[in-house]
Design a protein around this nucleic acid. Sequence first.
DNA 1: CATCGGACCTGTTAGC
DNA 2: TGCTAACAGGTCCGAT
Length: 274
Amino acid sequence: MPELPEVETVLRTLEPLILHRTITDVWRSRFPLHGQSPAPVRLRRALVGREITRLERRGKYLLLRVGTGGALIHLGMSGQLTAACSSDPHRPHTHFTAGLGAGMELRLVDPRRFGLVEPFEGSREPEAWHALGPDPITGEFTPTVLAAALARTRRAVKLALLDQKVVAGLGNIYVAESLFDAGIHPLRPGSSLTSAEVVRLHGAIDRILRQAIQHRGTSLSDYVDGRGVPGTHQLHLLVYGRSGEVCRCCQGIIRMLPMGGRSSCYCPNCQPVR
DNA sequence: CATCGGACCTGTTAGC
DNA sequence: TGCTAACAGGTCCGAT
């Protein structure tokens, strides 16, 4: 579910609700997230009794900071991270909660359990946070950086853009939309792009992500922001999920091709193989 | 080393 | 109507 625009929207809506609150207690379900979950004692030691000083985002990851230390959070495919009334009953598939006082609770609901809550102590954040490539809506992602990353791979550009080391935050939806916007076929090898195409692709990624953030993310089935409110960008998708429908640009038919176990929607007309 | 495929999960939907 | 299979926004790991 959540790609960069969704995670950014969660950050913007959640941070004002939880900032400067002190975590009173934490709980996790007996089910593992992401294949494993930290021992409850590790979560407690890193979080309980500490004040939330900041919520940060990089790519699709969130970092909940409590002074020194905190927790790295990922929403996986189906995660919802919200601030709720602690008196509200837990919804099914609630896997992590943190009491915030004043009758409030931070909750992670994640049916598919691909999400992650990884506590850390001290100044060194978990490795996954440092392994990420440039975040595309800060200044670190430039056409030059993208060109360098694509030049050194023969992978299909679609797969390269899904690699979080190349650019952090894109997923299946926004890669499809960005490639369409740039007029580039998803199967083109990364190293085959001309510099003009890289510049176009970089601009497309920037534009698409900013639009999606303005629309507070894409809610296809279960994405909601930190208050539980869905986004509206699904109303603006031009290729993702539109296989068989008419291209709004050329009136051709949007096609889908299987790549790396998942599907890529594109317009054969607007995105020629060349 | 780079790259690909499968595994990890549950819920929803399409098709028989 | 009811069952089964395919598919869904992500990431990691082992094999090639």
